[in-house]
Structures are given as structure tokens and as C-alpha cells.
Design a protein around this nucleic acid. Structure first.
Length: 529
RNA sequence: GGGCCGUUAGCUCAACUGGUAGAGCAGCGGACUCUUAAUCCGCUGGUUCAGGGUUCGAGUCCCUGACGGCCCCCCA
């Protein structure tokens, strides 16, 4: 399991009693589901370190002193006037006094809470305002040339200006449009340029101010390095956009070591996590909000989805098709390994089981996962669509005994997922619905006759057992020398409007007898012939 | 220009630090007095993208190449 590999590697290469695990995100809008991968990854590593007896706080930083550099489609157009201002200083798009950054950041935090992660949140705006960045800002100003040089050297970018400090404009409140023009050891001289960036317009103000206590922010690569130094971060992964060679992480790493004199945290470069299927209607066509994932899958499955594949592998989750049932099957396999329900026949198999077991362990959302009876997801989905079938009863039969409380909780979670899956994502093949009105079907005379006879059979008894009825259907089909396809097809067409369906005997037996008789009479009587 | 990932059965994917290539679905066959989604059993099916190399042994490690997906060189 990759988490164990990472944890063992950290313990071996950097022995310590305490590790600070950090992740961060700029809350510039609705936070994409991809950012959840970082949360889960860091949460797992922190858990793994803790399980090895180390202290391992997991910190999550919202970089809310970053300037707003674009306006998400869901945010009203009047917010364009805030472009360039720190996210912490912009009002929430839904009002209520909170900042723009808090609105989106806390919304994201709600999602990670659901999947069992509880990082300690910090806000860079507060760090700046409280002076925690002051030493780093002084260093960055004193050694600005060196930092700029590192940026150029490592990134290979010829881009002229990337001064490590951006003052907050005292006139317009923007922080993304300013450039430093001088530093006397106490005050920075700066200009708020109308043309510095394409996405915001500075007001043109020239001024001098203290860069400390919130008066400025570090440019983001320098800020990253400074945060490692200030917070003592020892482990921090990042998505591939940061981790490319000569990319922001490489630059920050050199800044961290050469300028701030601290060791670069253990890096963990991870791949993207995309959600296909229903794409959002944003202009770019991608960007499913994190919260949507936990509306498709319950917490353990959402985590499992991200824990199972290696972190260097891209995840492209498409909830349509058979993805969800398959994911559930794999989850069940992992659970079986974890609870010791399967025995390995070979050493290789034993290793595989251990791997599955660890995957399950790290997929737990909260606390110990109770051992419970796990009915196959596809079956749950199937049973739920059968009229007058109680899934709990079938589960108890299948289990061979009464369901425990844990069994019921597990089953209910599956039913929830199945309901949503059937409603929004399941292929038609998995979905059926008894039609309350006879659909317009095209049946041969033989099929009508078959259904008429079937009606007679059903009428024979007040109560039918599924198996018994199924036998009679086959017998009737044989007597009439009707091809199975025609016989069964006619039943499904009459009740479901499609050519196939659940096993006919059990299916009809589960329906209301009066309804079945009426429908058979109607369809065979040529009402719509 | 640079970087990451992928390519394994018809499909979707597994396979710990190299040690007999496996599942699910599909297909085929069978059991249950029953071809048509609730159960169970069996079977078929792979030159692991290609070509080199290391090794007693390579899906796995190294090199080269092909194809596919993505990222960076704006911002953060």
C-alpha cells in the first residue's frame, strides 16, 4: 500500500518524533473535487505516522491573502470589482458577513469532515495580520534579488519581474496589482499599476508603507517556502501542476533551503482526480465541486476511491455505467481482507490481501469500521426496484440469520447509494420500473394468447411463490411452443415497457395480484391492438 | 521545449521491495423440475504496446521508440 511505503520512507529518511503534515489551497471559488485527493493523501500519511507512534498534526492552510484573479461562473458579475484584492477582504457571495475566502474554504472543510479528515485549519491572512510572516517578509525584502534570481534560475523563466513581496495598496485595497519600488528597512515604496496583470486593474497609487502585519504578502513561491519555515512543515505533497520540473515546487524548495535555511518537506507529487460524467456548465467545462462527490458516494467509498489507486495515477471517476457497482465490489473485497474473511493460498496472495486490508484501513472515514454483512451493491440496487420486496428481509435470508445493528447501518448506506445511482447514473440495463399504464406495445397474436393464459394461471391462486410461478411460466411457454424470447419478452414489455427484466416468476409474484391480472387482461384483450 | 502518467483477456482494471499473469463484467457450458438480471459450479480467453539490455528468472528494473491522457513555460 502506497501510504505505508511513504510512511516507512519518511521514518527511514528523516527519523523524528514529530512530523508536521501540511496541505493548502487558495479558496478562490468553489473548490474542485480534485483538491480532495490532497486532503485524503495527507490525512492518510498523518494517520500512518500516528499509528507508528509519532506525533503528526495535519494542518490545512487556506491561502486567503492571495488576490482574487478570476471570477468563477457562479459568482455575480459585480464581484469583478474585487479582482486583485485579497480573498480574505472580499465579502462572501452569499452575504452574511463572512469573507469570500471563508465561504468557499469552510464549504470545502464541510466535505472533508464528512470523509473523516479533520485537519487543523489556518488562514494565511491571519498569519500576515498577526505578524507571523514578519521575519520572512524582512528576509524576502533584504534578499529580494536573490529570490528573484532563484526563480529565474530554477524555472528558466525570463519573465522580468517577480518581486517576492506584494504590498497591499492603501488606496484601493488590491494586493495583486502592486510592485515594490524600494525598501529602506522599515517601509516599502510601491506602485499600484493599472497594467501589471491582465485580470485586474491597479489604481495607479504610489505610496510607502510598512510591509509588516498584513501590509504585504509574499509572492506565492516565496510564500510557500516561508510557510514551510514558519510552520516547520515536514511533509507536504502537491498536485502535478506544482510538481513539474522547474515548476513552483522546485523554486520554493531552493528558496526554502538557500534563503530561509530550512529543509524542504518530504514532497509527494500526486496526479489529478477528475470526475467525468456530468460535467459542470462552467465555461471551461470541468470543475465538479468537491461536495458533489459525497452526494454520489458515501464517505467510505469516496475515500476508498482515492485511497485505492497509487497517488501517481490519474483517477478519472465517471459515476455512470458500472463504475459504482464495480467500486463497491472492490471495496467489499478489501473489507473481506481487512476482517480476515478470506484465506490466502499462496504467499503472493497473502501479500495482496494485506494490501487490500491496508487500503480498507485507510478508507475508514471515522473510527473503527464495524464488521457487517455486506450485500452486493448490484443486488441491493436490483432488489430495491422490486415492488413489495423488503431488502432487509432478503439480506437476512442471505446472511442466514437476523441482521445486527451494524448490518442494518451498512445495508442502509448501500441503499442510499443505490437509490442515487439508479436515479442518476445507472445504465438502463440495471434500471426498471413497473409502468402504471400499459405502454404502447407491439405483440404478436401468440404473445397475446400467452399472456392471456398466464392471466388464468395467476388467477388460480391467491398467493404465488416466485419460484412456483416461474415454473408455471416455463411450462406454459413449452406447451405453447413459444420461443423464450417471445414469451418472456411479452411479459417485460407489458409491465416494464422494455424487452428484458428480472426473472419473470419472482417479478410477477412480487407485484400486486390484482394489478397483474388487470394488466394481463388489458394487454391480451387487444385493448390497444 | 521540458515533465508526469498510462498501454496487461472482448470491455473495465488487478498483480508487495523482480519469483507460475488474476478478478469483475461479457461469452460459452452446466445445476436448481426454469436460456431471459435474486443462487451456485465450471470453461474459454493474454507474444503483458514494440525493440533492445541487466538477471538463474522481467508485466515489474534500465535504454530507445510508438500511441494515448495530462501538466508546466500566464496566475496561484
Amino acid at each position: 500500500m502506497w501510504v505505508d511505503v511513504i510512511v516507512e520512507d519518511i521514518l527511514a529518511t528523516r527519523p523524528a518524533d514529530r512530523y508536521v503534515v501540511n496541505d493548502a489551497k487558495s479558496p478562490s471559488g468553489p473548490i474542485h473535487v480534485g483538491s480532495l485527493r490532497g486532503v485524503v493523501l495527507h490525512d492518510c500519511v498523518a494517520r500512518g505516522l500516528q499509528a507508528r507512534g509519532r506525533q503528526a498534526p495535519f494542518l490545512y492552510g487556506f491561502d486567503d491573502y492571495d488576490p482574487m484573479d478570476s471570477r468563477p461562473a457562479s459568482v455575480p458579475a459585480e464581484f469583478d470589482r474585487y479582482l486583485g484584492m485579497p480573498l480574505s477582504e472580499i465579502p462572501s457571495p452569499v452575504g452574511g458577513g463572512a469573507s469570500y475566502a471563508r465561504y468557499f474554504g469552510l464549504g470545502f472543510a464541510e466535505v472533508w469532515t464528512k470523509i473523516g479528515a479533520q485537519p487543523e485549519i489556518y488562514w494565511t491572512s491571519e498569519m500576515y495580520k498577526s505578524g507571523r510572516f514578519n521575519d520572512a517578509i524582512r528576509i524576502a525584502l533584504d534578499r529580494a534579488d536573490e529570490l528573484i534570481q532563484i526563480d529565474r534560475e530554477i524555472s528558466g523563466s525570463q519573465k522580468a519581474e517577480r518581486h517576492p513581496i506584494q504590498p497591499l495598496c492603501e488606496s484601493c485595497g488590491r494586493i495583486g496589482t502592486t510592485v515594490v519600488t524600494g525598501w529602506d528597512g522599515t517601509l516599502v515604496a510601491y506602485e499600484c499599476r493599472p497594467d501589471k496583470v491582465a485580470w485586474a486593474r491597479g489604481c495607479g497609487h504610489h505610496g510607502r508603507r510598512s510591509p509588516l502585519d498584513g501590509g504585504s504578502k509574499l509572492q506565492y513561491k516565496a510564500e510557500w517556502a516561508a510557510k514551510w519555515w514558519i510552520l516547520g512543515v515536514s511533509v507536504e505533497g502537491a498536485g502535478k501542476d506544482h510538481m513539474t520540473k522547474g515548476g513552483s515546487h522546485d523554486v520554493a524548495a531552493v528558496m526554502c533551503e538557500r534563503v530561509f535555511g530550512c529543509r524542504t518537506p518530504v514532497p509527494i507529487p500526486y496526479e489529478w482526480f477528475l470526475v467525468g460524467g456530468r460535467k459542470m456548465s462552467t465555461s471551461k467545462g470541468v470543475g465538479v465541486p468537491a461536495g458533489e462527490l459525497v452526494e454520489i458516494l458515501r464517505p467510505e467509498l469516496a475515500r476508498f476511491l482515492m485511497v485505492r489507486p497509487h497517488y501517481r495515477q490519474q483517477i478519472n471517476f465517471d459515476p455512470s455505467g458500472e463504475t459504482v457497482p464495480t467500486l463497491y465490489d472492490e471495496y467489499d473485497r478489501a473489507a473481506a481482507a481487512y476482517f480476515g474473511e478470506v484465506e490466502a493460498k499462496t504467499p503472493a496472495e497473502a501479500d495482496l490481501l494485506r494490501d487490500h486490508s491496508r487500503t480498507f484501513y485507510f478508507s475508514r472515514a471515522d473510527g473503527e469500521q464495524a464488521k457487517a454483512y455486506r450485500m452486493r451493491f448490484a443486488k441491493v440496487a436490483y432488489l430495491m426496484q422490486m415492488p413489495s420486496v423488503t431488502v432487509e428481509e432478503v439480506a437476512a435470508q442471505e446472511k442466514g440469520g437476523p441482521l445486527t445493528e451494524a448490518d442494518r447501518v451498512e445495508l442502509r448506506a448501500r441503499m442510499e447509494d443505490a437509490r442515487r445511482w439508479l436515479q442518476s447514473y445507472a445504465p438502463d440495463q440495471y434500471r426498471f420500473q413497473v409502468l402504471s399504464q400499459l405502454p404502447a406495445v407491439d405483440l404478436t397474436p401468440a404473445q397475446r394468447e400467452f399472456l392471456a393464459h398466464l392471466g388464468t394461471i395467476v388467477a388460480e391462486r391467491d398467493h404465488w411463490d416466485g419460484e412456483a410461478l416461474h415454473e408455471r411460466i416455463h411450462a406454459l411457454k413449452n406447451e405453447m411452443r413459444l420461443p423464450p424470447k417471445d414469451a418472456f419478452g411479452s411479459i417485460y414489455l407489458a409491465f416494464l415497457g422494455k424487452a428484458s427484466g428480472p426473472q419473470a416468476g419472482w417479478f410477477l409474484a412480487s407485484l400486486d395480484r390484482g394489478f397483474v391480472l388487470a394488466r394481463l387482461r388489458e394487454v391480451s384483450g387487444g385493448v390497444r391492438a
